[in-house]
């Protein structure tokens, strides 16, 4: 599903690489935590996967695509296979919940018939049945993040990337979001989640990939946040 082969990324003007010689493989259907302090290279790791940036050295392979070598016009197709959720949610404030989810389908040219049937199903799946007509500011932080997850799933991606999705949420709400991500994983979607939250990682006992100063320092099958 995801393969990093000796990937190094140095940003123009920087002396030290943001990521250095990373080799890691994630199978389809896995649930993986990507952990590490701020500046450890987590964001660069995620950006390499969606081709926001290209590796300086090495290859990033998603499915059968060598992401760094894709032509510009091929990048949208890659991104349609990856759902992305951010810490800061990024909903459109003047569109309703349903419109926010539908937007992701409209802009990639899905048929309106499909959109009409799929959007309510997605809203229900993330536990927001009946809230489709609300505007984002009428929702709690956890509910907003659920909308963002529904949107990320709109085009049925094989891989869901979540970048600190619980970073702004209180512990109870966090549990709810994690249950949702587990369900999505159980339904067959590969999930890669970057997080600071030691509690979650320790509780879930999933695979943990840890970065420190741009290097891969740990890849543990049923890991906890810090060294046990």
């Amino acid at each position: 599903m995801i393969t990093f082969e000796n990937v190094t990324k140095t940003y123009p003007g920087d002396d030290l690489p943001a990521l250095e010689d990373i080799t890691v493989h994630i199978e389809a259907g896995e649930f993986v935590f990507l952990v590490g302090a701020s500046g450890s290279g987590k964001s660069t790791f995620l950006h390499l996967m969606i081709r926001e940036v290209r590796p300086t050295v090495g290859r990033v392979i998603i499915g059968s695509a060598d992401v760094g070598r894709l032509r510009t016009y091929q990048v949208p197709r890659l991104r349609r296979r990856i759902g992305i959720v951010f810490q800061d949610v990024r909903l459109l404030p003047n569109k309703t919940v349903a419109q926010n989810v539908a937007f992701a389908m409209q802009v990639v040219g899905q048929r309106s018939r499909d959109i009409r049937t799929r959007v309510p199903a997605l809203i229900e799946r993330v536990g927001l049945a009946g809230l489709g007509r609300r505007l984002p500011h009428q929702l709690s932080g956890g509910e907003q993040q659920r909308v963002a997850i529904a949107r990320a799933l709109a085009n049925a991606p094989a891989l869901l990337i979540a970048d600190e999705p619980t970073g702004n949420l209180d512990p109870d709400t966090t549990v709810g979001i994690m249950r949702l991500l587990e369900q999505i994983h159980a339904d067959g979607t590969t999930v890669l989640m970057a997080t600071h939250d030691a509690g979650i990682v320790d509780r879930m006992r999933k695979r943990v990939v840890e970065l420190d100063g741009g290097r891969l320092v740990r890849d543990q099958a049923r890991g906890v946040y810090g060294y046990a």
Binding site: Y73, P76, R80, R81, R90, L92, F103, V107, A154
Partner: peptide, 16 residues
């Protein structure tokens, strides 16, 4: 915001 979401969900350059 719209543009960044469109890019993120894989809208083509033409659609954007």
């Amino acid at each position: 915001r719209e543009v960044s979401i469109m890019r993120m969900v894989g809208a083509s350059r033409t659609a954007i």
